[in-house]
């Protein structure tokens, strides 16, 4: 089957996709985006974490066909995504990140799609400008020694970036909970905590 969706702000199309393929396989093997990692393929390690319509998910558990028409952000597009967000925040300091609160609670649908339409527009616009090569979390992971083998890094970066988007000044317990779906076998997590704390501090400082 054919699957068409947007990855990191660019329309993508994959043909001859076997119906049992995961979004992860399509990203890695068909679209040349192997940054999302294939560590467990059972939703137990978080290495393949991507944003699907803004929501962090395990790409290994999304059927390729379910991505049809959706917006995906992978580690390859994280710097651009974070840059677009930070410019949006600076431009309009009154803008709220989360529009879900405006929905009537009694008949609330999942409105993330609507929220992210704006993100997509901004991301596309950002493509014409040279974004910084690294998102704040990426720089912080490098600076604090949070990367060893690096196989868990892409998923952790997506999860950590999303945490800081929601909670700019997280407690250690918040960080641990937000990253509890991302296994790392090398670091013992201490430097990863350091990295998220550092990224939070730098981002808050920059505002």
């Amino acid at each position: 089957m054919r699957v068409t969706f947007t990855v990191n702000g660019r329309p993508q199309q994959a043909d001859d996709v076997w119906e049992g393929e995961s979004l992860l396989y399509v990203l890695r093997e068909r679209l040349g985006l192997p940054g999302s990692k294939n560590a467990c393929e059972q939703g137990e390690c978080g290495s393949c974490t991507v944003r699907l319509d803004g929501v962090p998910v395990c790409a290994c558990l999304v059927a390729a066909g379910q991505a049809e028409g959706r917006e995906v952000v992978t580690v390859e597009g994280l710097a651009q995504y974070a840059d677009a967000r930070s410019r949006r925040t600076t431009q309009d300091t009154t803008a709220t990140q989360d529009t879900t609160d405006t929905t009537d609670a009694t008949t609330a649908a999942d409105t993330t799609t609507a929220t992210d339409a704006t993100t997509a527009t901004d991301t596309t616009a950002a493509a014409t400008r040279q974004p910084p090569p690294l998102a704040p979390v990426q720089q912080a992971f490098i600076d604090t020694g949070a990367i060893q083998c690096g196989f868990c890094t892409p998923g952790l970066l997506i999860a950590a970036d999303e945490l800081l988007e929601r909670t700019p000044d997280p407690s250690d317990a918040d960080i641990r909970e937000a990253l509890s779906g991302n296994l790392c076998r090398c670091t013992g997590y201490e430097k990863i905590l350091d990295a998220v704390r550092l990224a939070a501090a730098r981002t808050t400082e920059a505002r």
Binding site: P34, G35, N38, F141, I142, G145
Partner: peptide, 23 residues
């Protein structure tokens, strides 16, 4: 010195080529 890893940027951007990424 606590010099940063030379492969750090590649690993943080998803561009580092692991053996399972080859094509």
């Amino acid at each position: 010195e606590s010099t940063p890893r030379p492969d750090g940027i590649l690993k943080a951007t998803g561009e580092f080529a692991y053996s399972s990424d080859l094509w």
